[in-house]
């Protein structure tokens, strides 16, 4: 499925930025959030993984559907908390501004059986 990728802060990620080398931190940044309809359409259930691919890289993440009822992500968009996983797929190009494009990157997601890797593997 074609998606627009948005990255950003979450409260959980924020509370753990000074605990980076912990399992809790990995958990706070190694997922992507999808619109409920998209989630169902892809036949996903909690705990399933998706592969996110862009022109700049790919990464396997846990899939979550919109957590709070009153909030929502529109169809065709996924949200990844800022951090090492998101940074595998965002656009490092800066268009001369010096700042990468962290939001609004085009990508593809698909269901996968592969596992989500840990942080040391990401650095390898």
């Amino acid at each position: 499925m074609n998606v627009i990728i948005i990255t950003g802060r979450t409260t959980e990620q924020g509370t753990l930025v000074e605990d980076k080398l912990t399992h809790d931190y990995f958990k706070s940044v190694n997922y992507c959030e999808l619109n409920k309809e998209d989630f169902a359409r892809m036949g996903l259930k909690e705990g399933d993984r998706v592969r996110v691919k862009t022109d700049y890289g790919e990464v396997v993440l846990f899939a979550r559907k919109n957590v709070i009822d009153e909030t929502h992500i529109p169809e065709g968009m996924i949200f990844i908390p800022m951090g090492p996983y998101a940074n595998q797929v965002i656009n490092p190009g800066t268009d001369g501004t010096g700042t990468p494009q962290y939001k609004g990157v085009k990508g593809i997601i698909e269901k996968t059986d592969e596992n989500v890797i840990g942080i040391p593997e990401i650095l390898r």
């Binding site: 080398l21 090492p84 965002i90």
Partner: peptide, 26 residues
């Protein structure tokens, strides 16, 4: 290492890095 794009972190791995920080991080 946690907040730069992957391609930039690749170069950071190649050069000597000095870190000043209270907490261990990537």
């Amino acid at each position: 290492a946690a907040h730069f794009p992957r391609a930039a972190v690749e170069q950071l791995k190649r050069i000597p890095v000095i870190q000043i920080d209270p907490f261990p991080n990537m």
